[in-house]
Design a binder for these strands. Structure first.
Length: 795
RNA sequence: GCUCGGGUGGCGGAAUGGUAUACGCGCAACACUUAAAAUGUUGUGAUCGAAAGGUCAUGUGGGUUCGAUUCCCACCCCGAGCACCA
């Protein structure tokens, strides 16, 4: 018997599949369509990560099963190739990112092909290809034309040492990742996308999609919808008013002071009235310098300064209350100002304690003088006394002429990067005409070559140094104008790549409506947990927006979204180069083969849970596949009747089919192992049983399954076969073991037909010595009989 | 603090109201071998027992039930995400 030579087999079938184009997705096929998606990888210099295999294998299994079920399947692949690591590599070595990207994608392609994934390679996309990013730019302009892309002064992370604007992920604990210098905030005009305009749609859309609960929860959390009221407070002896947002208008009578964010515009406007303005100014300055890290640190002592000389009037009581500034109030949220109700808000409470501000209890519950954030009936609230707090919210809002409003934690999306390796933002700035979009015929705005990839000392992108790129004619007035030199964040290309897969070669549109109508929405999207907030939210935002413009057929892009757990290093810590515990996929594939690598990664544990790599565990899977090979060669596969095996096969087909849909791949594999263990005990295996087993094994271990399939003298690949069905009557056993219990405790068991009647079973059970011993002379009070399971005698 | 997961043998884990510990790893004994590896067979939660069998075990404490890993209540611990969001 030939040895299981996975190297030879895997190479052979990979070549054969390429020839037969088994991953080919056919546009407009009459078959039902199925679209499986994985997050397209970032082609890093390190090559494929062991974790990629887990996600890609899972969707490969689903895709292969769907093909066998008769679907026309789209399972595409591409490269999310813009981004920092390649750019940093260019800065360090001077290697053109285009060159590095080409090399890296070639390596990734080779690695992925070596794992036998059934991608439609003809639809490969690459976000750094001008033919691709032409449309990323075009899509940005659609946002611009609808007023959803705008420029605003916002804070960026600035490294004073490297003189460079940093991406959030480059700021580690408030310090520059590269040089360790303390990161500062700096104002810079940035392009923004108005995702907040879609907050409600992003929230509502979640109701009709099938995402893992924790994924939905994270999205909901991130959007952070909060219902409340906007109330106005008059400032004494002044025409100014302070607007506040509150979720607790019912506590208005307990508002004993107000707080403005240090950045609040009124601070400057009230300058003349503020007697301690020097102190105030100093506080604002420190607050501005503080890093996000410091400002939001846990258990931080509250700080603040009173605006002396300024009083606000509580609209409910008519009483004057002091106004403070403090950094616990955020300028970007709500109105940037709050009414402080120390008795019923933890933050206001600790602030009031520190600065000796009055605490007035206005909702019953808790102890007066102490914090109470729960509901109750109003007290100390004049005519509202006794009213329950829920109703009082509306009544008091009405009473003081406020209005109901909704606020979101979601912020607009900062869409500018002062970086080289990204899509140039296709905008021209003209003194006369303002921001003018680059005309469609001039797209793409191609990223020009540069000598130095490092952002400039003034914080501008290296593109700002390319004179021929910057200086252009205004498309509108033909006067002198300057090109935008900011590039897009790496989220841009990944916000719509799934649309391009439907029509990847289209030179006239980002994708044709006809093809989008055929393929969208994505039926199943799997990826990492680390992308379920931002990437998922951003791409949903783009899709919903494009749907509103009539450019894509569905509002939500993903019908179903799941996430795999991370693969950790051997002792359960994160895999990393620095820890030296990273497992190299190439080594694994070379030593064990692609099929073992695939099956092992699916067998390790529950798919959605993080799990530690186990060098020993992979041996078990190796044995399983080798045993399958041995069985195929040693046993006679032929004409025979074997009811036991037929029953087991039926149960296995059912289990594997159901488990794939639940992503319970590990139990699917364990049930195939059980079948194999039984099959290897037989001398002759019925050919039909063996064929069906190979079919259900095929999505998991596609190479081995095909090899053994051809061994049976089949002419076409197992991957063109239909997913097997099973005879449900085979699942019914002819005899069953019924456990005999006395008072719920197992005392023995009896073998009976599945439909045996209670009387007969009871009689048989009582004949058991162990049962009669347990019963003794006691009287049976009750009998609980569950057919095929248990009989419980209660005494 | 809030939200979402999770806690079961030496280890990864299975079982979603009905035989707890499937499957795999590890370990032990045996067979094959000059030997080792590989392979195969058998065993493997703890504890008492020569055995038959008993008792105890699914984070902790309570509850519902004939019966709870599974359902309910309270608590403890671990992981992930968010977080001075008014």
């Amino acid at each position: 018997m030939a040895k299981y030579d996975f190297k030879k087999i895997e190479k052979k079938w990979q070549k054969e599949w390429e020839k037969q184009d088994i991953g080919k997705a056919v546009d407009f096929s009459k078959k039902k369509k199925w679209y499986s998606l994985i997050e397209f990888p970032y082609p890093s210099g390190q090559g494929l990560h062991i974790g990629h295999i887990r996600s890609l294998t899972a969707m490969d299994i689903v895709s292969r099963k769907r093909r066998m079920e008769g679907y026309n399947v789209l399972y595409p692949i591409g490269w999310d190739a813009f981004g920092l690591p390649t750019e940093n590599y260019a800065i360090k070595t001077g290697v053109d990112p285009r060159v590095a990207t080409k090399k890296n994608t070639e390596n990734f392609r080779k690695q992925l092909k070596g794992l036998g994934f059934s991608f439609d390679w003809s639809r490969e996309v690459n976000t750094t290809d001008p033919k691709y990013y032409k449309w990323t730019q075009w899509l940005f302009l659609q946002f611009f034309k609808k007023g959803l892309a705008y420029k605003a002064e916002i804070d960026i992370n600035w490294c004073p040492n490297d003189k460079v604007g940093l991406a959030n992920e480059e700021v580690i604990a408030g310090k520059c990742e590269r040089c360790g210098a303390e990161v500062e905030k700096r104002k810079k005009a940035q392009w923004m996308l108005k995702i907040t305009a879609y907050a409600d749609k992003l929230l509502k859309g979640l109701e009709k999609v099938d995402y893992l609960d924790e994924i939905k929860a994270q999205q909901v959390n991130w959007i952070g919808r909060s219902e409340g009221a906007e109330l106005e407070f008059r400032i004494s002896n002044s025409e100014f008013r302070i607007k506040v947002f509150t979720t607790r208008p019912d506590t208005l009578f307990g508002a004993t002071y107000m707080v403005l964010a240090p950045e609040h515009e009124l601070v400057e406007k009230l300058k003349d009235k503020i007697s301690n303005f020097n102190e105030v100014e100093a506080y604002v300055k420190t607050a501005r310098k503080e890093t996000e890290e410091e400002r939001t640190a846990e258990d931080r002592e509250k700080t603040g300064v009173e605006l002396k000389g300024v009083k606000a009037v509580n609209p409910a009581t008519g009483e004057e209350i002091p106004v403070w500034i403090a950094d616990y109030v955020l300028a970007e949220y709500g109105t940037g100002a709050i009414m402080a109700v120390p008795a019923h808000d933890a933050r206001d409470f600790s602030f009031a304690k520190k600065f000796n501000l009055p605490i007035i209890h206005v909702v019953s519950g808790g102890t007066p003088g102490e914090l109470w954030e729960g509901k109750g009936n109003l007290v100390n609230s004049r005519k509202f006394d006794g009213m329950d707090s829920e109703r009082a919210k509306a009544e008091i809002t009405k009473f003081v002429g406020g209005k109901k409003t909704v606020n979101y934690h979601l912020r607009d999306w900062v869409f500018s990067r002062q970086r080289y390796w990204g899509e140039p933002i296709p905008i021209i700035h003209c003194e006369k005409c303002g921001y003018v979009p680059v005309p469609e015929k001039d797209l793409p705005v191609v990223l020009p070559p540069v000598k130095n990839y490092k952002p400039r000392d003034d914080g501008e992108s290296p593109l700002a140094s390319v004179v021929s790129f910057v200086n252009v004619k205004c498309p509108k007035c033909k006067g002198v104008a300057k090109r935008e030199t900011d590039t897009m964040p790496n989220w841009a290309g990944s916000s719509w790549y799934f649309l391009r897969y439907a029509d990847p070669k289209n030179a006239k549109e980002f994708a044709s409506m006809k093809k989008l109508k055929y393929w969208m929405p994505i039926d199943w999207y799997n990826g990492g947990m680390e992308h379920v907030t931002l990437h998922l939210l951003y791409s949903r935002f783009w899709n919903i927006f494009l749907h509103d413009q009539g450019l894509v057929p569905t509002s939500e892009p993903y019908r179903k979204r799941t996430a795999q757990g991370m693969i950790l290093g051997e002792r359960g810590v994160k895999m990393s180069k620095s820890r030296g515990n990273a497992v190299n996929p190439d080594t694994i594939v070379r030593a064990y083969g692609a099929d073992v690598a695939r099956v092992y990664e699916m067998f390790m544990g529950p798919f959605d849970r993080a799990i530690a790599w186990d060098a020993k565990g992979i041996e078990g899977v190796k044995r399983f596949l080798r045993r399958t090979w041995d069985t195929a060669h040693e046993k006679e596969i032929g004409k025979t009747k074997n009811e036991k095996l037929e029953r087991l096969l039926a149960a296995t087909v059912k289990k594997v089919g159901e488990d794939i849909e639940k992503m319970a791949f590990h139990t699917a594999i364990s049930s195939m192992m059980i079948f194999m263990n039984a099959a290897s005990d037989e001398v002759i295996i019925p050919a039909g049983v063996w064929s069906d087993f190979l079919k259900i094994l095929a999505p998991f271990a596609p190479h081995l399954a095909d090899e053994l399939w051809y061994l049976l003298k089949n002419k076409k690949s197992v991957h063109f076969e239909s997913w097997p069905s099973y005879d449900p009557s085979l699942l019914k056993e002819e005899v069953v073991e019924v456990v005999a219990q006395v008072n719920g405790k197992r005392r023995g068991s009896i073998i009976v037909p599945p439909n045996a009647e209670e009387g007969a079973v009871k009689e048989a059970a009582m004949k058991l010595e162990t049962v009669s011993a347990a019963l003794g002379s006691a009287k049976i009070k009750k009998v609980v009989y569950v057919k095929g399971r248990i009989i419980n005698l209660v005494i």
